[in-house]
Computed example of a mutant assay.
Amino acid sequence: MLNFSSLPSEIRQLCRDGKLETPTSGLALGFVQANLVVLPYSLAFEFLLFCQRNSKACPILDVTEVGDYEPKIIAPGADIRTDLPRYRIFQHGELIEETSNIKSFWKRDLVAFLIGCSFSFENAMLNSRLPVRHVEEQKNVPMYKTNIECIPTRMFSSPLVVSMRPLPANNVVRAVEVTSRYYKAHGSPVHIGNPEVIGIKNLEKPDYGDAVTVNDGEIPVFWACGVTTQTAIMQAKPELAITYSPGYMFISDLKDEYLTL
């Protein structure tokens, strides 16, 4: 049975066998989780430029060689075609399919980008006795599009997408201190408090993931989110793009401390 102490290799094998169908938050605590974006080589430099200009939302952890599906830096021996629970396939900016295996879509000119994820600092939050509501409620983290615009490139542009974790008011400063160390996992929050300031009208209706309980006396805290890359892909409309399904991440062999300052 999967639990907080499951090893990354065990989880990747379950994905490879088509036996993991849940979001990965709370799994293999202490190990780095990553977003996935796969694009043709012809777009790789410009996407890398978009990530460099928007590193808060898109911190690069690994980039594969052209046509190679092994993320050699963060998980030698892994296969990004099979080792995530769920993928999204986009054609010309339109989501056409969600699948548990992308072997049939793989081409020799594809490049894979592994991007830091806020799930990687949740172990540090839990160790600091900070609540992580979506883990408590066994849900996917809620994610929202904002009115904050990323720095564009010629092809890629996007509003910033954020994830939200509600915290008691007396825990907010501690959460900032804990998460700010994890600069390769989005680091410190981008907004604290009133969601309407950043264009979020209803916390109960996230654009991605699941709504979670916000108790009386709690403050919504928002972190940059790698789903930003998916909105950029939808606006750029490349012929083919492959991503993870929001909340269904790649679990690497790196320890969380790799991501700290």
Results as ranks from 00 to 15, higher is better:
49 L>S: 13
55 S>L: 07
98 E>L: 03
85 P>Q: 09
37 V>W: 01
66 V>P: 03
17 D>K: 14
47 F>H: 04
18 G>M: 10
37 V>H: 01
106 W>V: 05
43 L>F: 05
67 G>E: 06
18 G>Y: 08
111 V>I: 12
94 E>T: 10
40 P>T: 01
31 F>L: 02
100 S>H: 10
97 E>S: 09
91 Q>C: 04
87 Y>F: 15
21 E>S: 12
101 N>V: 06
58 C>H: 09
38 V>E: 01
75 A>I: 07
62 D>N: 14
58 C>N: 13
112 A>M: 03
82 T>C: 12
74 I>A: 08
111 V>S: 10
57 A>E: 14
68 D>Q: 02
23 P>M: 02
36 L>Y: 06
20 L>R: 02
67 G>H: 03
91 Q>H: 11
30 G>K: 12
58 C>V: 04
50 F>L: 07
66 V>D: 06
112 A>L: 02
86 R>Y: 02
109 D>W: 06
81 R>V: 10
53 R>N: 13
110 L>I: 04
19 K>D: 09
53 R>D: 01
62 D>C: 09
33 Q>Y: 10
100 S>P: 11
77 G>M: 06
74 I>E: 01
56 K>P: 00
44 A>S: 15
87 Y>E: 07
106 W>G: 09
78 A>C: 04
103 K>P: 00
63 V>D: 04
108 R>E: 14
84 L>G: 09
60 I>P: 04
29 L>K: 11
78 A>W: 03
